[in-house]
Design a protein around this nucleic acid. Structure first.
Lengths: 243, 243
DNA sequence: TAGGTTAAATTGTCTAACATCAGAGGTCTG
DNA sequence: CAGACCTCTGATGTTAGACAATTTAACCTA
């Protein structure tokens, strides 16, 4: 394989390998995979291990398994980059092929409000940093960002002007953001934000209020993002649970 | 177990059983589950089957497994009913503890537009049924619905006035909706819809444009739903992929 | 031709064993 | 007594092989 650390569990490596083979066209859409017995021989793992990998790939809708028939590559190619995949605003702008920029508005340190205490599960004397920025794409303002983060998570002398808060946290502290719970709200007009983003009167805003957690489920960052609806498009894959 | 059809695969039943036991408090947060050997004996399945179930529960972030240590219930309580879980508008209203109703506005049969042909992958002479309804909660209008569905998927004499289109499709045809791709858009004011939903001027709308598919990835239903933003709250769990 | 039967292929499930890892506790040594 | 090291134990990870259930297609028969 590659130089990659393969000290990870075997079934994870198998998952990556099969995904890779699908992406590179070894197995094509709707095509039948080799039988489990055959495939386990090819990959040099036991059938049980292969099955654990296949189960997860099925759960992720990458493949479909049919009892007595076989395992097939699922169609559904590029539904990625949906909203269920968390990425920083910086990444979103870059993925759209545009150059991200930041207009720094303000940063203040406050005591924690009652809401903050609930959100971050902290004491009343915990200090919270509040950063206010406008994100731009090729110089054009597209997102208004309000970020709240407890000071204890930040080293002293951190530079808030730097583009990505996600990268900041990754580089300057050891807290990687693992997931977030996002609340989605529409907003017709906001007295302060709409003019900042230079919105036409008929352009609505999509507001994402997000609580970010690290891999230990500790709340790290709360953010409110106002997206110009004509500059961003959000979608999500919704799965049915019952029947 | 219950009266439920247990002709489904064993590992799926095990998943449901464990989820149920977590919800009902048999296993509590952060608590250690019995060992795989023990648990497989309790449930009356083999360890291999149990492991397939546990793998998926781990993938779904319900449990955490640590080699050489054990399996633990994850914190993360009730993040369900997020938007990534597809349910009909009827279900959403019911889950809010209110009584769903329908105001039937119109239904027309049209030829397929170019857009329809692309969406449903059908020929130009395919006829499309267009249904226009207002959904109510305890009599109050909350969602404006526009549904497009190819006539070939519908038996003759189907009753569109009946509450849930999802259930209609399930009962009167054999096409169960399995998933949908939803595009999310904010809307400040809509000339036609806002008055129908009796929106205050400052109340924005959240628009969900959704393509629904059955389990064979066949496009079945296209719908545009306008939600009154003060009556509905949407959220989604966003996971980080890289790092 | 129509319908039933059989056989082959494939996924689903089970059993038993060994490998690997992490933690607990004891032992040795400075 | 403290700290490093060892060993034992219980847990998950992995393997091998077998049988069960299901689907499909080929075959046979009336």
């Amino acid at each position: 394989m590659s130089i990659k650390s393969d000290n990870r569990h075997l079934y994870l490596q198998v998952i990556d390998r099969i995904k890779h083979d699908i992406e590179t066209g070894v197995y094509k859409e709707k095509q039948k995979l080799p039988s489990e017995f055959e495939l386990s021989k090819q990959l040099g793992v036991s059938r049980a291990t292969l099955r654990e990998a296949l189960r997860i790939l099925e759960e992720e809708n990458v493949i479909i398994r049919r009892h007595g028939v076989g395992t097939f590559v699922n169609a559904r190619p590029l539904f990625t980059s949906g909203i269920e995949q968390l990425s920083s605003v910086t990444d979103m702008i870059e993925q759209a092929g545009r150059k991200p920029g930041t207009i720094f508005l303000s940063s203040t340190v406050q005591g924690s409000t009652e809401e903050d205490m609930r959100r971050f599960q902290c004491s009343p004397d915990e200090e919270i940093l509040l950063v206010e920025r406008v994100r731009t794409a090729d110089g054009e303002p597209v997102v208004y960002c309000l970020d709240k983060i407890p000071c204890k998570y930040l080293p002293k002398g951190i530079s808030y002007e730097y583009e990505s808060l996600f990268e900041n946290l990754h580089n300057q502290t050891n807290r990687d953001i693992a997931y977030a719970v996002a609340h989605i709200e529409p907003l017709g007009y906001h007295e302060k934000v709409s003019p900042i983003l230079q919105c036409e009167p008929e352009t609505a805003l999509l507001v994402l209020k997000q609580m970010h957690f690290d891999k230990n489920d500790e709340p790290v960052l709360y953010s409110i993002n106002y997206f110009k609806s004509d500059k961003f498009s959000f979608h999500v894959l919704r799965k049915r649970i019952n029947f």
